[in-house]
Amino acid sequence: MTEPIAPAKKPFLYVVVCASGIAGDVGTLIAAAQECHWDVGVVATPQGLGFLDVEAVEAQTGYPIRSAWRKPGDPRPLPPADAITVAPATFNTINKWAAGISDTLALGILCEAYGMGIPIAVLPYLNAAQAAHPAYRQSLERLTEMGVRLGSYEPHRPKADGGAQRFRWTEALDLLEPEVVGRANA
């Protein structure tokens, strides 16, 4: 008699969500990732949490949204990440992350992921005035040096509608695919 074959474990994707007007559309990325056979958990920045429909996101993923550190001895609500995407990634989060600042759970996870070799894709979403700041360019350079894969969104005009229609949520999956496929075949 042959032993039953256990179903293959799906890779686990952390989606880090920042405080942005388009954050409420993160379900688009979650659905696309699930269609590509990812399990998904959401980690929100403390301010980003207010931009999400928490109940809807938790129902879609089957996991609680993480936003705060857990206490010692508390169970881990999410499995370890096989990959991470930051979408939408704000000016603030990108600059703090590149500088190694770990003052929120989301930033702590991102800072630690580099040392653990976890593939990361980032989809910046900010206006052109913020993007013109020298710190932003330096932060993108540092993240690129760290192996982070950057999305192609072009910053929108300040005080404009924000270019939400141009934001390509699923680009994160395209950016991660070569890395994840390479790890699976290793």
Rank of each mutant, 00 (worst) to 15 (best):
A160S: 15
E58I: 07
K96Y: 08
Y153L: 12
H156P: 11
S152R: 13
G100L: 06
A131D: 13
P75C: 03
I65V: 10
E177V: 08
L150P: 08
F91K: 08
H133L: 12
R168K: 13
G108R: 04
H133V: 11
A172Y: 03
V54R: 15
L105V: 03
A81M: 00
A132N: 14
A135T: 15
I84P: 04
H133M: 14
P75H: 06
L143M: 06
D174W: 04
G115N: 10
Y136N: 14
S67W: 14
G163V: 03
K71I: 08
Q130W: 11
Q130I: 05
V54L: 14
I101W: 14
M116W: 09
R157Y: 13
R76G: 11
G163Y: 05
A121N: 02
N95W: 04
E177R: 13
T85W: 09
A135R: 15
I120G: 06
L143G: 03
P158R: 07
L107N: 02
G151A: 06
P155S: 03
L126Q: 12
L78P: 02
N92C: 02
L150A: 07
S152G: 11
W69Q: 12
G73A: 09
A113P: 01
F91M: 11
T90R: 07
E177G: 05
V148M: 01
E177W: 12
A106M: 07
P79E: 06
T61H: 10
E145R: 15
L175T: 03
D82K: 06
Q138H: 15
D161Y: 11
A59L: 13
D82G: 08
A81C: 01
Y136G: 09
P134K: 08
G147A: 03
E58F: 07
G162L: 04
A56L: 11
A89H: 03
Q60K: 12
Q130E: 07
I94L: 10
T61D: 11
P80K: 03
R137M: 09
E55A: 14
R149C: 00
L175C: 05
L105N: 05
A56E: 13
G73S: 10
Y63E: 09
A81W: 00
D53T: 07
E55D: 15
L105G: 05
A135E: 12
H133C: 10
A132D: 14
A81G: 00
E177K: 13
L173P: 00
L107T: 02
P77E: 08
W97L: 05
A99M: 12
F91D: 09
E177M: 12
D74L: 02
Q165F: 04
A59C: 12
P134S: 09
P64W: 08
G117V: 00
A87H: 11
A160Q: 14
F91V: 08
L176E: 00
I120V: 13
M146N: 14
L175N: 05
L105M: 09
R149Y: 00
A132C: 13
P124E: 02
L78V: 01
I65P: 02
P80E: 06
A160H: 15
Q60A: 13
A129M: 13
G117C: 00
L175Q: 04
F91E: 07
A128T: 09
T61L: 10
Y114I: 14
A128G: 06
A99S: 13
P134M: 10
P77W: 10
A81K: 00
T104Q: 05
P88F: 01
P119W: 01
M116N: 14
D74R: 07
D161F: 10
I118N: 02
S152M: 10
R149D: 00
P155Y: 02
L143V: 02
V57R: 04
A89D: 07
K71S: 12
